[in-house]
């Protein structure tokens, strides 16, 4: 019963490709997400240097600080790998610990982002100030929302794990959460490179 709790019924059947249906579906969804973030990032780039009033990116972007938060997010991907390995091998302690760590690191990243947003606000940059404000907050805001969803998802899995509901045969649910998490991570790398580093 538990085994199928989050799997579609069709997932039981042998599939045409031998791959898991839920996983294929999720990859397809991530393809769609790529276009979503692609459009957001393109808009940011198109509007780069088009703001008619400050603050401008070089006046507010704090690269050292964001490097730290980027590092935190990268580490969370590593933690995700370890968590999945733990669940797959039936190592409950390892799985639970690293799942929790991913959520903690993700939340830390969100904390950094909240700090960054407030800081910008105090420097006079809001959604409405200029094109930079509009494009920056909407892009990073949507990314932050994705991280938030990920954190909630991971915590949910963690609670399931605590209740002993994450045996190795259910590792797929963790694997798919991991796919999502790595995707969100990669998007951030793109954002960090294109927006922070290549000013």
């Amino acid at each position: 019963m538990d085994h199928a709790a989050t799997l579609p019924a069709a997932g039981h059947a042998e599939t045409a490709t031998g791959l898991n249906t839920f996983k294929v579906g999720f990859w397809v969804f991530l393809g769609s997400e790529t276009l979503f973030f692609g459009s957001l990032i393109s808009t940011y780039l198109v509007y780069k240097h088009q703001s008619i009033s400050g603050p401008y990116p070089d006046q507010v972007l704090n690269i050292p600080l964001t490097s730290v938060s980027t590092f935190v997010l990268l580490m969370s991907s590593l933690a995700m790998v370890l968590a999945l390995a733990g669940v797959q091998r039936g190592n409950r302690r390892q799985g639970l610990f690293w799942l929790f760590m991913v959520a903690v690191l993700g939340s830390t990243f969100l904390g950094f982002q909240a700090y960054e947003f407030t800081e910008f606000y105090h420097k006079g940059l809001t959604l409405q100030t200029n094109l930079f404000g509009s494009t920056f907050f909407v892009l990073t805001g949507f990314h932050g929302a994705h991280v938030t969803v990920g954190v909630i998802w991971l915590l949910t899995l963690w609670v399931q794990g605590l209740r002993g509901e994450l045996p190795p045969e259910r590792s797929l649910t963790v694997e798919i959460a991991g796919l999502y998490w790595h995707f969100v991570d990669i998007v951030w790398i793109a954002i960090f490179t294109l927006i922070y580093l290549l000013q």
């Binding site: 808009t43 509007y47 088009q50 703001s51 409405q128 094109l131």
Partner: peptide, 28 residues
């Protein structure tokens, strides 16, 4: 998803005063 982004920009412009399509603020 591309339409979704275009619509989000419009919604943000209309509800929260962003500048995506507002020429007065440099938007195009």
């Amino acid at each position: 998803p591309v339409l979704a982004v275009a619509l989000f920009f419009l919604t943000f412009d209309r509800f929260w005063g962003t500048n995506f399509y507002m020429p007065a603020a440099g938007g195009d």
